[in-house]
Design a protein around this nucleic acid. Structure first.
Length: 411
RNA sequence: GUGGAUGUAGCUCAGUCGGUAGAGCACCAGUUUGUGGCACUGGUGGUCGCGGGUUCGAUCCCCGUCGUCCACCCCA
């Protein structure tokens, strides 16, 4: 008492009412589709050893460099709230020795992620992702299938998007391209902006999609990633494009599309929306064939994606609410007492809203509307005297009176 | 981390060229001694983000602080 009111932490939001309904709608839709594609649920801890994220997400990324919720726990362990989902799933995949098993594993997950960033539209410190990870399948068909799955999810949520794809190459072609690009950038270093000069060291490919006009004009002759792929990467990328075209899925090739996390290779993709402000990515993912071995597992090809639930919450339209169940109310205390038993019975099969305050029928009817009940059950003075219930269907407006002790056969 | 806005009732916002505040929505009640989603009437509800300064007096002016929003960076 008298102390300062406690508010949620910066960048953290409570989800209730319409927001939580949207959240559940998105997650249940995504789960249903993921299950149709053969994915099963996996739940991993929110807290992990910090080293996990340093080795997977990569020290060069901003996520690890400056956005982690990292601290020492009471056992003096260096721990971290997960900033993304893939690392923990891969860790679990290896911890459970699934990498020793020569078969495919497909997992879906959803839950909160934490990044210590400055909040803005579509960007929170505590936010939720739904994601899928497929292990053991090297075929580009799997990349294609996962893109189809995301498309299905957005289609069923009625959300429009643009699909962008790129290939990041593999261990055979990416390093060579990287050197080529660094050499090119080195020559025009003095003309590039401050940010780009920093990027040359941290993530040179990012320089390619710098927003400043000066940089863009300097970059017109830069070597392009897609022109420098090895034979396998190139033919897989061509195959992916063909598969998408045959399926009628529109896409844009974006040679500058770079995933923010270090572990990606080959196929990279992003679903963007132009309706949600500056943070336009609503889902992103790609292939990460080397991550399992980086984390000391047996080399296992993998591909996955994550979608930002809060970002698509602004885009989904909730289905019309339907009236459901019963609202129970009385004009007098004794009636409420009887309704407690009625509620107990009905709750075995129906949604029930029981009002404990005695008040007029009119007032109860209003409350019943607000509760979105399909029917109201009411006990007034007459019903109390006759041991009956007055029941009205709020949609059809039909009314009936039944004996309380015949409720089991009447409802 | 940088920059720009902003902070008045549960919500959306007005307002006072400095004299401690209002509307709409929502909520409650009544109009109808027992018939809803409409209408009308009335009511509950705010130390005008917090701290300091100027002033006889600050919600309004000044400084600070915290929060929120938006953009950059980066990302889902």
């Amino acid at each position: 008492m008298g102390e300062k009111m406690i508010n949620p932490l910066r960048g953290m939001k409570d989800l209730a009412f319409e927001d939580s309904q949207k959240f559940v709608h998105i997650v249940t839709t995504a789960i249903k589709i993921a299950r149709n594609y053969g994915y099963s649920y996996i739940e991993t801890p929110i807290l992990e050893e910090t080293a996990l994220f340093k080795r997977s997400v990569g020290e060069s990324s901003d996520i690890v460099g400056k956005e982690m919720y990292q601290f020492q726990d009471k056992g003096d362990n260096d721990v971290c709230m997960r900033p993304e989902g893939t690392a923990g799933i891969v860790r679990a995949f290896i911890s459970n020795k699934l990498d020793r098993q020569d078969s495919n594993y497909r997992f879906y997950y959803y839950g909160p992620m934490f990044r210590y960033e400055r909040p803005q539209k579509g960007r929170l410190r505590s936010f939720h992702q739904f994601g899928c990870e497929s292990f053991g399948e090297a075929s580009v068909y799997e990349d294609f299938t996962i893109i189809c799955m995301i498309k299905d999810i957005f289609d069923s949520l009625n959300i429009g998007f643009t699909l962008k794809i790129n290939s990041l190459g593999c261990k055979d072609c990416m390093p060579a391209y990287r050197e080529k690009l660094i050499a090119f950038l080195g020559n025009i270093k003095n003309e590039l902006c401050e940010d780009c000069n920093r990027r040359i060291d941290t993530n040179p490919i990012r320089v390619l999609d710098c927003k400043t006009e000066k940089c863009q004009s300097m970059l017109s002759g830069s070597p392009k990633l897609l022109d420098n792929l090895c034979e396998v990467c190139d033919s897989d990328f061509e195959k992916l494009k063909l598969l998408l075209e045959n399926m009628g899925i529109k896409y844009e090739c974006d040679s500058n599309l770079v995933r923010g996390l270090d572990y990606y290779n080959k196929t990279a993709f992003e679903f963007v929306s132009n309706e949600i402000g500056s943070q336009s990515a609503i889902a992103g993912g790609g292939r990460y064939d080397r991550l399992v071995e980086f984390l000391d597992g047996k080399p296992t090809p993998a591909v996955g994606f994550a979608l930002g639930i809060e970002r698509i919450m602004d885009l989904v339209i909730l289905p019309e609410p339907k009236r459901e169940g019963y609202y129970l109310g009385s004009m007098n205390e004794d009636g409420i007492h009887k309704l407690l038993e009625v509620a107990n019975f009905l709750r075995k099969n129906h949604k029930v809203t029981l009002e404990y305050k005695s008040k007029s029928l009119k007032s109860h009817l209003k409350s019943a509307d607000r509760a979105e009940a399909k029917s109201i059950i009411f006990i007034g003075d007459d019903e109390l005297a006759n041991e009956t219930l007055w029941i009205k269907d709020l949609e059809t407006k039909e009314e009936k009176i039944i004996k309380i002790d015949s409720i089991e056969s009447s409802l």
